[in-house]
Nucleic acid binder design. Structure first.
Length: 881
RNA sequence: GGGCGAUUAGCUCAGCCGGUAGAGCAUCUCGUUUACACCGAGAGGGUCGGCGGUUCGAAUCCGUCAUCGCCCA
């Protein structure tokens, strides 16, 4: 016997362990079933489960569990990535507690420490994913620093280098002066800031008292200026183009050049050019062959390229010092407030410096072409489709991808340098030595590049490296490309686009057919959750309070395409109530001997009641499946919820009660078996969303299950189970009962009172239906007798119209005639309103001429129905007098 | 500045190919009838952001404006 309420805490861990140990999460490479593959976006090894994870992994699990039940060979490939900078920072912070830095340890010992850290602290998120019910193929779990994946990284790097798609270059990169590494454009956060614009006067050489005024938001960089640009069409400066100005403080002569980059409308129209410290200036400098003077060191302090009294100053100290000096020199023209954006490192939180260094780059532009084409041709499809625009926008304007990082935790770049700086890129040191030997005709000492690769470089290979590439494995042939990638929009550039580039280049095909982009989870007020705001809701807390299924159902039900999710505890509570409702419905079935029967044939049921629920069940399973396949998760959840609660519990089980308590044993047997069958199907179609409670009930309700629910087949969609006549009949019955209940409530009839009811003008169909369902009507509407009459009693009755018939409830003692009159009059008015609208529509020549015939017919029919109802209501009104 | 999204009941949101505006929560009334008060029955509540257009017909398609949010520069 089931407990009175469902207690999630008691069963979840046990159920999960049973699933995992039984191996049902695993794919079956040798099976004949069509594969269904989802590559799990690998969370950071440093990560712990937050609400965004809970959403994305719930949706992935819904898909995987659904397609597994549909008979596909489902592979959900799990794993984590090594999160280079983040992980290194964590371990360095731990080291700092003992007063050490990584440099005290040295590279090798430090990397060992990171591995150690991973072994002890790295498995958090995998445990939490299990808590969430994620049915991933855990024995296949991979880590981006695994031997196999590292081999893939090396091979890709070497091959792309040989193809000229990876190259070393001296360019401006985003330099993080705290972490001492380059980072990619995407790791830079542009923060709006109330800055200032300083206007400096630079004296023109050979023209005493003549100055050119330049504006700058970063005065300290002027020490590295190597030119001044003006717009070629700017008359104010035309004569100065080609002349020289003297850079104050430094006393360096620098040229005035004409370049479109100078905007005559902005500031003074003249702009100082610091090619080594600004991305735009870098381009201008290139065009005009200006010198590049790097004035900053790796800590963003001024270096030896500036006058002695500025050397060693921090950039912000230097800024004040430059302004002071310029003012003292009388060369500070003015200062204006200037709203601007300032780049910050998303990991370090410090201001990023454009800095001139040697780095490795990927020719992203070339690699982007195939993915762009794939999306254009629909071989990869974004859902919702508008995300393709974001993708195109970025891919068509893509910049070289800086992949080298000056840290220690990651894949070390397989490049070796000879004594003269010649580069040998090979998969192993031996091969590099061999190449060097061939190059120098001699054995030379090589030095390996110190840098490691951007973590996203290895993540980009995830769809095939996890399947064994570069080996030609069975898995690779079978599970690549994946069916869908499920992720948030924030990662389209970082990861989705890069997987597509690498997938195309190395596998010659898209890495996945669909990309489903889901929303962000926000707090109940729509604010982004953040630790600093203190509005973070921990999914594990919700799981502890309401159970995993309630959380999963909430996230699924709220995952409408194109809209962010405002998470609130009350919603989770509501869906917890739903799990309890399901539990209690199952308990009711159990109490009434509704046991699933292997020989049950839903097509063979005879009663209208059972044919109706069988048809509805089948239609519901079809709708839920279609919704999941279309990534309409909210719709899947809603359809399943409404069927379970509002159809099965509210009506079917209520209808079943009189049958169970009645005399007809054949009807009882059929209804018991049908209830059990329907409940089984409800468990099945809810299982992808709420795996725990459904599996628990599945197990509890029968001793002879051939499979656990997770491995049970999705309900068959059988056309022969449709029953439109039964559905119409039951709809009528529900309508009749609802109408009577409504009148009773409105007339303040005591809920316990059993009333006689008379039905006037019932046609043959209604009479037959009434005969069939007399007991049901009597029970559910609390009546004691239902009689067909030709003549209605006059006053002292409440009346309600159901289709062609008028239902009369004699209430001589209790009725408030005035209230009844008002109620009927209000109903008449309501019908009249509709009638007017429809009549107008049907009087419209254009409508009659142009609307489809069936629409016109439908409207005519509706009008006739409304008029008939209205007339009956009027008659009822007249009877009251 | 460019792009994307949102605007529908008190709140949170569905509404697909244009054809009778829906759900959950909240509110109000009634109720403990042997699954469930984490419940049941009933009720009220909407100029679908504004304006214009297309159409026989617009929440839905188009244009425009407003407000809010996000991304990019």
């Amino acid at each position: 016997m089931l407990d009175k309420t469902y207690n999630a805490q008691d069963i979840e861990e046990r159920r999960y362990r049973a699933w995992e140990e039984s191996g049902v999460f695993g794919c079956a490479p040798d099976s004949n079933a069509a594969p269904y593959t989802i590559m799990m976006p690998p969370p950071n090894v440093t990560g712990s489960l937050h609400m965004g994870h809970a959403l994305t992994f719930t949706l992935q699990d819904v898909l995987i569990r659904y397609f597994r039940m549909k008979g596909r060979d489902a592979l959900w490939q799990p794993g984590t990535d090594h999160a280079g900078i983040a992980t290194q920072m964590v371990v360095e912070r731990n080291l700092a507690d003992t007063g050490q830095t990584r440099h005290d340890l040295g590279r090798e010992a430090f990397v060992d420490k990171v591995w150690e850290w991973r072994a002890h602290s790295g498995g958090t998120i995998q445990r939490q994913l299990r808590r969430l019910g994620a049915s991933a193929d855990w024995p296949r779990e991979r880590f981006t620093m695994d031997d196999g994946l590292s081999r893939a990284v090396t091979k890709v790097f070497v091959q792309l280098h040989k193809e000229g798609l990876i190259y070393r270059d001296k360019r401006l990169v985003n330099w993080d002066p705290k972490l001492h590494t380059a980072i990619s454009d995407l790791e830079v956060e542009q923060r709006p800031t109330d800055g200032q614009m300083w206007y400096f006067r630079y004296p023109v050489q050979g023209a005493p008292d003549r100055f050119i005024v330049v504006g700058t938001t970063r005065p300290e960089t002027m020490l590295g200026d190597t030119g001044v640009a003006v717009h070629p069409d700017d008359d104010r400066y035309r004569d100065l183009v080609g002349k020289t100005v003297i850079l104050p403080i430094v006393d360096r002569p620098i040229p005035v050049v004409a370049d479109d980059y100078a905007d005559p409308e902005k500031g003074s129209g003249a702009v100082k050019i610091t090619p080594a410290h600004d991305f735009n200036d870098f381009e201008v400098g290139r065009r005009h062959d200006l010198a590049m003077i790097n004035v900053l060191d790796r800590d963003a302090r001024l270096n030896e390229a500036v006058p002695a009294d500025f050397q060693g100053l921090d950039r912000f100290v230097a800024r004040d010092r430059v302004i002071e000096r310029m003012e003292a020199l009388g060369l500070l023209e003015k200062v204006e407030p200037n709203p601007m954006t300032v780049p910050y490192g998303d990991r370090s939180g410090v201001v990023i410096e454009p800095w001139l260094t040697d780095q490795w780059f990927v020719d992203a532009k070339t690699l982007a072409q195939a993915p762009i084409q794939a999306v254009e041709e629909g071989r990869t499809r974004f859902v919702p489709a508008h995300w393709a625009n974001t993708f195109f926008e970025w891919m068509r304007n893509i910049q070289p991808w800086c992949i080298s990082r000056q840290i220690w935790w990651g894949h070390r770049i397989p490049a070796w340098y000879g004594p003269d700086g010649a580069i040998f890129v090979e998969e192993t040191e031996e091969e590099a030595q061999a190449a060097a030997h061939a190059h120098y005709n001699d054995a030379v000492a090589l030095r390996r590049d110190d840098d490691v690769l951007d973590t996203w470089f290895s993540s980009a290979l995830w769809p095939f490296s996890t399947l064994g590439w570069p080996d030609d494995t069975q898995e690779l042939a079978r599970y690549y490309p994946g069916d869908v990638l499920v992720t948030g929009f924030d990662i389209i550039f970082f990861w989705v686009a890069r997987m597509m580039m690498m997938g195309h280049h190395f596998m010659g095909d898209v890495p996945f057919r669909d990309v489903y982009i889901h929303a962000l989870v926000r707090d109940a007020k729509g604010q982004k959750m953040s630790k600093s705001k203190g509005n973070v809701i921990d999914p594990l807390d919700l799981i502890a309070t309401y159970g995993t299924d309630a959380l999963r159902f909430t996230l699924t039900a709220m995952a409408a395409q194109g809209r962010d999710i405002k998470m609130s505890e009350s919603r989770v509570q509501g869906y917890r109530n739903f799990t309890t409702k399901l539990w209690n419905a199952a308990r009711f079935c159990e109490m009434n001997g509704c046991i699933p029967r292997a020989d049950y044939d839903p097509a063979a049921v005879t009663s209208t009641l059972n044919r109706w629920i069988v048809a509805r069940t089948t239609a519901t399973a079809r709708a839920v499946g279609a919704a999941i396949e279309a990534y309409r998760f909210n719709e899947a959840a809603q359809v399943a919820y409404q069927f379970t609660w509002n159809t099965f519990c509210d009506w079917y089980l209520e209808f079943a009660k009189p049958v169970f308590n009645g005399e007809d044993t054949a009807a009882q047997a059929e209804t018991r078996a049908t209830a059990a069958w329907v409940l089984d199907r409800i468990l099945t179609l809810l299982h992808p969303i709420m795996p725990y409670v459904t599996e628990e009930l599945w197990d509890a309700l029968s001793d002879s299950r051939p499979h656990p629910l997770i491995a049970a087949p999705w309900p068959e969609d059988r056309a022969d189970l449709a029953a439109p006549a039964a559905e119409a009949e039951m709809d009528w019955l529900v309508g009749l009962i609802t109408a009577i209940r409504s009148v009773r409530a409105e007339m303040n009839v005591p809920p316990g009172a059993r009333l006689p009811v008379q039905i006037k003008d019932a046609n043959a169909t209604t009479q037959a239906r009434l005969e069939t369902h007399r007991a049901l009507v009597a029970t559910l509407a609390r009546l004691d007798a239902v009689t067909l009459v030709d003549e209605a009693p006059t006053s002292g009755a409440a009346q309600v119209v159901v289709d062609e018939a008028t239902v009369i409830l004699p209430l001589a003692d209790v009725i408030d005639l005035e209230a009844e009159r008002k109620r009927l009059a209000r109903d008449v008015a309501k019908q009249d309103g509709e009638i007017t609208k429809l009549a107008k529509k049907l009087a419209n020549e254009g409508f009659l001429a142009k609307a489809p015939a069936e629409v016109v017919a439908e409207n005519r029919e509706r009008l006739a129905d409304l008029e008939a109802t209205r007339d009956r209501l009027k008659e009822a009104l007249a009877r009251i007098g």
